Computed example of a mutant assay.
Amino acid sequence: MAATEPGSGPTGLGDVTFEQLGSVEVLQAGDDVTVRGTLNRVEWPEFSSDEGDRTGYYLALRLTGTSGAYVATYTPRNVRKVTALADAADGLVKALNEGQRSFTLTAYPTKEAAEANDGGTRYYFDLSGVEYAE
Protein backbone atom coordinates (compact mmCIF):
# COMPACT_ATOMS: atom_id res chain seq x y z
CA MET A 1 0.00 0.00 0.00
CA ALA A 2 1.20 3.49 -0.78
CA ALA A 3 0.06 6.65 1.03
CA THR A 4 0.31 10.13 -0.50
CA GLU A 5 -1.28 13.55 -0.19
CA PRO A 6 -4.94 13.80 -1.23
CA GLY A 7 -6.19 15.48 -4.35
CA SER A 8 -7.87 18.86 -4.32
CA GLY A 9 -11.45 20.00 -4.46
CA PRO A 10 -14.56 18.48 -2.86
CA THR A 11 -14.24 15.51 -0.51
CA GLY A 12 -17.58 14.14 -1.69
CA LEU A 13 -19.18 14.54 1.75
CA GLY A 14 -21.11 17.78 2.06
CA ASP A 15 -19.45 21.06 1.14
CA VAL A 16 -16.05 20.35 2.75
CA THR A 17 -13.02 20.45 0.46
CA PHE A 18 -9.66 18.76 0.92
CA GLU A 19 -8.10 22.24 1.17
CA GLN A 20 -10.30 23.12 4.18
CA LEU A 21 -8.91 20.13 6.08
CA GLY A 22 -5.39 21.55 5.96
CA SER A 23 -2.15 21.16 4.07
CA VAL A 24 0.11 18.16 4.64
CA GLU A 25 3.09 16.41 3.14
CA VAL A 26 3.16 12.59 3.28
CA LEU A 27 6.46 10.69 3.15
CA GLN A 28 6.59 6.89 3.16
CA ALA A 29 9.45 4.48 3.76
CA GLY A 30 8.11 0.92 3.71
CA ASP A 31 5.48 0.58 6.42
CA ASP A 32 6.44 3.86 8.14
CA VAL A 33 4.57 6.97 7.04
CA THR A 34 5.49 10.48 8.19
CA VAL A 35 2.95 13.30 7.95
CA ARG A 36 3.99 16.96 8.27
CA GLY A 37 1.98 20.14 7.93
CA THR A 38 -1.13 21.76 9.35
CA LEU A 39 -4.60 20.38 10.02
CA ASN A 40 -7.51 22.75 10.54
CA ARG A 41 -10.41 22.29 12.95
CA VAL A 42 -13.48 21.70 10.76
CA GLU A 43 -17.21 21.35 11.40
CA TRP A 44 -18.32 18.48 9.16
CA PRO A 45 -21.84 17.20 9.96
CA GLU A 46 -21.85 14.82 6.98
CA PHE A 47 -18.66 13.03 8.07
CA SER A 48 -20.21 10.63 10.54
CA SER A 49 -23.45 9.49 12.13
CA ASP A 50 -21.55 9.70 15.44
CA GLU A 51 -22.09 13.25 16.69
CA GLY A 52 -18.71 13.23 18.44
CA ASP A 53 -16.90 12.78 15.11
CA ARG A 54 -18.59 15.68 13.30
CA THR A 55 -16.27 18.46 14.44
CA GLY A 56 -12.53 18.19 14.75
CA TYR A 57 -9.40 17.37 12.80
CA TYR A 58 -9.34 15.16 9.73
CA LEU A 59 -6.37 13.78 7.82
CA ALA A 60 -7.01 12.96 4.17
CA LEU A 61 -4.72 10.42 2.52
CA ARG A 62 -4.68 9.00 -0.99
CA LEU A 63 -4.12 5.24 -0.69
CA THR A 64 -3.20 2.90 -3.53
CA GLY A 65 -2.36 -0.78 -3.63
CA THR A 66 -3.51 -4.22 -4.66
CA SER A 67 -6.92 -4.55 -6.30
CA GLY A 68 -9.47 -5.99 -3.87
CA ALA A 69 -7.53 -4.96 -0.76
CA TYR A 70 -9.07 -3.45 2.38
CA VAL A 71 -7.73 -1.24 5.16
CA ALA A 72 -8.74 -0.99 8.80
CA THR A 73 -8.15 1.70 11.39
CA TYR A 74 -9.84 3.06 14.51
CA THR A 75 -11.97 6.18 14.96
CA PRO A 76 -11.22 8.66 17.81
CA ARG A 77 -13.90 6.80 19.79
CA ASN A 78 -11.99 3.51 19.30
CA VAL A 79 -14.43 1.96 16.80
CA ARG A 80 -12.69 -0.25 14.21
CA LYS A 81 -13.55 0.80 10.66
CA VAL A 82 -12.90 -1.35 7.55
CA THR A 83 -12.76 0.35 4.13
CA ALA A 84 -12.19 -0.97 0.60
CA LEU A 85 -8.88 0.38 -0.71
CA ALA A 86 -10.67 1.21 -3.97
CA ASP A 87 -12.88 3.62 -1.98
CA ALA A 88 -9.75 5.42 -0.72
CA ALA A 89 -8.24 6.12 -4.16
CA ASP A 90 -9.42 9.76 -4.09
CA GLY A 91 -8.87 10.18 -0.38
CA LEU A 92 -9.42 8.23 2.82
CA VAL A 93 -10.29 10.63 5.61
CA LYS A 94 -9.20 9.72 9.13
CA ALA A 95 -10.70 11.61 12.06
CA LEU A 96 -8.09 12.51 14.67
CA ASN A 97 -8.07 13.71 18.25
CA GLU A 98 -6.55 17.16 18.68
CA GLY A 99 -2.83 16.77 19.25
CA GLN A 100 -2.79 13.09 18.20
CA ARG A 101 0.79 12.13 17.35
CA SER A 102 0.38 8.73 15.68
CA PHE A 103 -1.98 6.00 14.51
CA THR A 104 -1.81 2.67 12.73
CA LEU A 105 -3.65 1.45 9.67
CA THR A 106 -3.63 -2.21 8.61
CA ALA A 107 -3.93 -3.35 4.99
CA TYR A 108 -5.49 -6.72 4.18
CA PRO A 109 -5.70 -8.66 0.91
CA THR A 110 -9.47 -9.29 1.22
CA LYS A 111 -12.58 -8.02 2.96
CA GLU A 112 -12.88 -11.30 4.84
CA ALA A 113 -9.34 -11.00 6.21
CA ALA A 114 -9.98 -7.38 7.23
CA GLU A 115 -13.25 -8.18 8.99
CA ALA A 116 -11.63 -11.11 10.80
CA ASN A 117 -8.49 -9.05 11.59
CA ASP A 118 -6.51 -11.92 10.11
CA GLY A 119 -2.90 -11.07 9.29
CA GLY A 120 -2.44 -7.94 7.25
CA THR A 121 0.37 -5.42 7.06
CA ARG A 122 0.43 -2.71 9.71
CA TYR A 123 1.45 0.83 8.72
CA TYR A 124 2.59 3.31 11.37
CA PHE A 125 1.70 6.98 10.78
CA ASP A 126 3.92 9.48 12.60
CA LEU A 127 2.07 12.77 13.14
CA SER A 128 4.71 14.44 15.31
CA GLY A 129 5.28 17.03 12.55
CA VAL A 130 1.58 18.02 12.40
CA GLU A 131 0.31 21.32 13.80
CA TYR A 132 -3.32 21.40 14.92
CA ALA A 133 -4.67 24.86 14.04
CA GLU A 134 -7.93 26.44 15.15
Score class of each variant (00 low, 15 high):
Q20K: 09
D90F: 11
L127P: 00
Y108C: 03
L85G: 01
S23C: 10
E115V: 11
L127D: 00
F125M: 04
S67F: 08
P76H: 07
A69M: 03
L63T: 03
V71H: 07
G56T: 00
V82F: 01
V71E: 00
M1P: 11
Q100T: 07
G99M: 05
L85A: 05
T55R: 05
S48F: 09
Y132H: 09
S48N: 07
T104A: 09
T4A: 13
P45L: 08
R36C: 06
T110D: 07
G120E: 06
Y132I: 09
G99C: 02
W44S: 01
A84V: 00
E19V: 11
T73C: 06
P76N: 05
E98W: 06
E25T: 14
V42K: 03
Y123T: 09
L96T: 06
N78I: 08
V16I: 15
E115K: 12
Y70V: 03
Y124E: 15
M1E: 07
T121Y: 06
T38M: 01
S48R: 10
A116W: 04
L27F: 10
M1C: 02
A113W: 11
R101I: 11
S128E: 11
T110V: 12
A29K: 15
Q20T: 03
N117P: 01
A69T: 09
L59Q: 02
A107H: 10
A2F: 15
F18E: 03
V26R: 05
G120F: 08
Y108D: 08
E112T: 15
L96R: 05
T64C: 05
G120I: 07
R41M: 06
T75I: 06
T104E: 14
E46D: 15
E112L: 15
A133N: 12
L127A: 01
E131T: 15
R62C: 09
V26T: 03
G56L: 01
V93P: 01
V130Q: 03
L13E: 14
R41T: 04
D15F: 12
T64H: 05
G30F: 04
E131K: 12
L85T: 09
G7M: 04
S48Q: 06
Y74I: 01
G68F: 08
